[in-house]
């Protein structure tokens, strides 16, 4: 039962984070929120017992992708048009 609540909580949070990353106008914030999204996914994987996937998600999704996104955003206008 506890796991169910945990899962539901994380999944709800995922939706919120996903919508937020689309919603915010500042691309940098969006990128960081996207990192949060990956981290939540990582938690979910770990909770499901897929530790390998969780590890990959942590390194690639939450780590490198965010860095690369931020590096790119520094060369763009930070404000998104839509």
């Amino acid at each position: 039962m506890g796991l169910e609540i945990f899962n539901t909580f994380i999944l709800l949070l995922l939706v919120v984070v996903a919508v937020t990353s689309l919603w915010v106008k500042d691309l940098l914030v969006s990128a960081v929120v996207f990192g949060v999204y990956s981290f939540l996914m990582c938690l979910l994987w770990a909770e499901m017992g897929a530790v390998d996937v969780a590890f990959t998600e942590a390194t690639v999704g939450a780590g490198i992708s965010t860095v690369v996104l931020v590096a790119t955003i520094f060369h763009l206008r930070r404000k998104s048009n839509d």
Binding site: V51, D52, F55, T56, T59, V60, G63, I64, V67
Partner: peptide, 21 residues
Amino acid sequence: SPGGGFQGGVLMGASFILIAL
């Protein structure tokens, strides 16, 4: 244990990125 080429490689790359940062 969990891990392998992808994760190890990413970590290694990350260390260089850290230097660059």
